[in-house]
Design a binder for these strands. Structure first.
Lengths: 190, 190
DNA sequence: AGTAACTCGTACACTGGTGTTCGACAAGAG
DNA sequence: CTCTTGTCGAACACCAGTGTACGAGTTACT
């Protein structure tokens, strides 16, 4: 190894903390370090031994979550009819958004906005590319900026997560609802 | 007066606290009572004299904000073509959402969700009625539940507020963007 | 087996908020 | 004018979280 060959048990603990933090923060964005340490089966001091501060921990979790997401999203076939590609992308994205929603909140009030945006860049770009292609092919509307369309997609998904949490729709209904709404919203105006 | 004839200066102070709280909480949903009291030109103790707890204060501010909103919204003409009526409603709602956005956040983590929902009922109902009428007239889609459409409208507006805050769009652009997006999204599927 | 790396619990200092108490003082109502 | 109502600042108790220090004990590398 070129750098930082931590001891085996240390690596195990770091992993445990990371997954425990992901779980806790997904439940409650304001989860304390004590809570997380306990969930990881680890002393709070140990946690601070690996992550200098709460913010550092959250950042690490966030980075990991994005990486996991990118991996599944990378497998989605974005070729062919842009409308169908978007449907596939929503299918996959949707679960991720639902799952990591609270974590995003945690990141937003522990990290500087610029950093959050930075880490979001990759998944953002993927959506943008698809939308651009659809616009070029005349399938998606061009009377609104692409960045706005991305934001609409983002917000509709988050809204769906809220609706689920409030018990007004079920998890199964979400994806078709989102797809139907967005495909319609992205249609070129008549 | 039937009840509670407070002294004149007390009433003045209550009003000052209420408006100061509205201002502070709109800037920062986590504004402290000290901050609000100072902004109102009043001692912190005086504040607690009128509002037993932070939550009570926030509720009062929230109620007032809703009342003010309802007043302007009540003036909007919702008759005629549902699409045009929706456009008018968005024009008016939009500024309110943008203005009270942070306050809603404050209410959400100081009040029980049920209470928040309860206070939102009136403005919610107005939108619902319009959408229902549009559906009945075949202008808006009926393949998705009305409550979902309401939530989409809600979230697109909030998203627009975020975009403004991030400097990606201007306040002037927001209304037309929202309108264009929602009218398209609410179209019956072809 | 020896050593360095790691972990643990407890305890501590610090911060920043909430809500209360007290006693002196000011202002409005009758 | 008087008396009730309200206001003020400072102080206090309290809570919950963050981050640090210490010392003893344990675990993995070599």
């Amino acid at each position: 190894m070129a750098v930082a060959t931590k001891r085996a048990d240390a690596q195990r603990n770091i992993a445990a903390i990371l997954t425990a933090a992901a779980e806790c923060l997904s439940r409650d964005p304001a989860a304390s370090t004590s809570e997380i340490a306990k969930a990881a089966g680890v002393g709070r001091v140990t946690l601070y031994g690996h992550f200098p501060s709460r913010a550092d921990l959250i950042e690490a979790v966030f980075v990991q979550a994005i990486a996991i997401g990118e991996e599944t999203l990378g497998k989605v076939d974005l070729t062919g009819d842009p409308r169908e590609a978007l449907t596939r992308l929503i299918e996959s994205s949707w679960h991720l958004v639902d799952q990591w929603r609270a974590l995003l909140v945690a990141a937003q009030d522990a990290l500087p906005p610029s950093r959050v945006r930075e880490l979001h860049a990759d998944p953002m770009a993927r959506v943008e590319r698809l939308l651009e292609r659809g616009r070029a092919e005349g399938v998606f509307r061009t009377d609104l900026p692409t960045s706005w369309l991305v934001s609409v997609m983002h917000n509709v998904m988050h809204g769906a997560a809220t609706e689920i949490q409030a018990g007004r729709i079920t998890s199964d209904e979400a994806a078709p609802y989102i797809t139907a709404t967005l495909l319609s919203a992205f249609n070129p105006p008549t």
